[in-house]
Write a protein that binds this DNA or RNA. Structure first.
Lengths: 88, 88, 88, 88
DNA sequence: AACGTTGAAATAGTTC
DNA sequence: GAACTATTTCAACGTT
């Protein structure tokens, strides 16, 4: 464990540096997040359905193999429970 | 706005009562949540896939009409973007 | 992974049972949530401020200050970075 | 709702454009997130406690306590209920 | 290294 | 429809 205190402030400075770097990165992340929100808002303003868009993004992000595997399992489970699983 | 203070403690007592009641209800809710977790754990221990079970529960909770409506829209969007949307 | 299908429906029945149990628990949870809402509504009707009540509940829930744990370390880090760490 | 289909692909192209833009932004966000993880790892390698660092970041992120708002009301409620409301 | 635990981040719903 | 709250989901962390 890094020791802070006593008579040297070097560990403290090091910590401060880490904290600052992370704070800046968190700022960046927030900015990107804000951009994403804006694009969704724009799409919504043109009449697109945001929720469905999110789903499409999820599907695109999935590897095709995983996708079909999950889909099959969902099929089986839905059949077992008596739920129609049409394409969601 | 209910006045608290001055020389009467009745409003304070009333507030305390409300807070206590809600705290108890929150406890109840936590207990139920714990039960849910236990059932999922039990199912998992028997080899079922928890994530897929959650999906089934979502689908069951949906009104059939909404379900098919969303499914159709997803179809259209996936086609537009070039993603296969097999049964997810 | 639990196998469903082939010629035996026992795994299917088992899954159905799990799903049903969880559905019931979710119903319970919704009921409790509804009760909470009602108490808040009652308090509001008597003039209390709901938002502030929520904060009080948060603070009450935070209670266990756990000053034994890593609180000292937090003190040190906050000092190093120049943040006041009133409680926690 | 934006209509897609029939004989014009303009809405489809528009959707595709939105989806692409968001995908890119999501990539950016993942990259930033990765950077954050790296800095934490670096700090940890120098002996700092990651969990405590996260708490420091939380505390720093907490707003200037806004004592003008409804803080007085919170004081009153906390007093009524018997909770110490150090800051907020 | 998988498991559960925990905390953060996203999404959905509700209120004003 | 904008803001806030609540729920759900996801990812990271320590643990066995």
């Amino acid at each position: 464990m890094a020791e802070i205190g006593h008579n040297s402030g070097v560990a403290a400075d090091r910590l401060k540096s880490f904290i600052d770097r992370i704070e800046n990165l968190i700022e960046d992340r927030k900015a990107v997040q804000e951009d994403i929100k804006l694009v969704f808002a724009e799409a919504k303003a043109e009449g697109f359905n945001v929720k469905t868009m999110r789903r499409v993004l999820q599907l695109k992000a999935m590897k095709p193999h995983d996708r079909s595997e999950q889909a099959q399992l969902l099929d089986v489970y839905c059949a077992a429970v008596g739920v129609e699983d049409l394409f969601l």
